[in-house]
């Protein structure tokens, strides 16, 4: 052996808190390098993602050939709503979906061991360590659709609405993320939770439509359940309404509630995650 070892233990870097931004950028970089390695897969995923967006848009273009309004939403207003839905979906699919899917598998196989060893917040590490870059095309598509709809909207939204929109968009993403990470964390107790993923897919489907359609004997209970108990209905409705509808007294209570719902979702999911990590029993070596 050579005599290249010159330092001894104890020459640690001072116990700094890691820069979460730098770590996230390293995750993003590594994910991009990996995605570029499998070029064909990246191209196919990108095409699939864009096609799904285009089909969604085409579906509503077809519907608006036969009507001028869906539950009080004109074509351009609804395009704003749709763009918001697609944007939230794209962000969730790019950042959280691959990680939450893998998280469940890591729990089952014991691969989570290494995440628990790192001197960094485990929830951060588990939630963001992989980024699905091909899904971000969807965000670009959604931004384009948003620009188009805003251009043709009869009334330009107020500056306040423009300021609040990205904030509530982030709240919506946070609610979706909370739901996803909490469901994934239950794998610790359930062993496997494929059904819960299906469950997640079904309930988030409700978030894709305006609140107004949930009325009547069937609609009212659904609206209450998915607004106040599992608040997926406010994910898209609150930000989209801010841009597409005039700011009036009807919007504000929901917007205030959205703040509370976001904080509560993040807090609850953190609680579930922490409890799950305490119950983690690893898998055989």
């Amino acid at each position: 052996m050579s005599d290249v070892v010159t330092s001894t233990i104890g020459d640690h870097a001072p116990a700094f808190r890691p820069s979460y931004t730098k770590v996230f950028l390293a995750f993003a970089r590594n994910s991009l390098v990996r995605d570029m390695t499998f070029r064909s897969n990246f191209i196919i995923e990108s095409i699939t993602s864009l096609s799904w967006m285009a089909m969604n848009l085409a579906y509503y273009i077809l519907i608006y050939q036969f009507t001028v309004s869906i539950a009080g939403w004109s074509k351009m207003e609804y395009f704003l709503f749709l763009a918001t839905t697609l944007f939230v979906n794209a962000i969730v699919q790019a950042l959280f979906m691959p990680n939450c899917e893998e998280f469940s598998e890591l729990i089952r196989t014991g691969g989570l061991d290494f995440a628990l060893l790192k001197p960094i917040d485990t929830q951060f590490l588990v939630s963001l360590h992989k980024i699905n870059w091909s899904s971000l095309w969807g965000a670009l598509f959604a931004a384009g659709l948003m620009g188009y709809a805003l251009w043709y909207l009869p009334e330009t939204p107020s500056p306040v609405a423009f300021l609040l929109y990205p904030f509530y968009l982030a709240c919506g993403v946070a609610i979706m993320y909370s739901l996803m990470i909490a469901l994934a964390a239950t794998s610790v107790w359930l062993g496997r939770n494929q059904t819960l993923y299906d469950f997640w897919f079904y309930i988030t489907n409700f978030s894709r439509y305006p609140l107004e359609i949930y009325s009547g004997a069937v609609g009212d209970p659904i609206r209450v359940l998915f607004t106040f108990i599992i608040p997926v209905l406010i994910v898209v409705n609150v930000p989209a309404r801010l841009l597409a509808k005039p700011l009036d007294g009807q919007n504000w209570p929901l917007a205030v509630f959205a703040l509370f719902a976001t904080a509560a979702s993040l807090w609850l999911s953190r609680l579930v995650f922490t409890k799950a990590m305490r119950s983690y029993r690893s898998a055989s070596s």
Partner: peptide, 26 residues
């Protein structure tokens, strides 16, 4: 752990090392 892998499977090991640098503040 001899039977478990903590490095990014599809990437060169040096990319994982750089990530460790950030996480451990080296």
């Amino acid at each position: 752990m001899g039977q478990k892998n903590q490095l990014w499977w599809d990437l060169p090991a040096q990319e994982s090392f750089r990530l460790h640098q950030q996480i451990y503040c080296i």
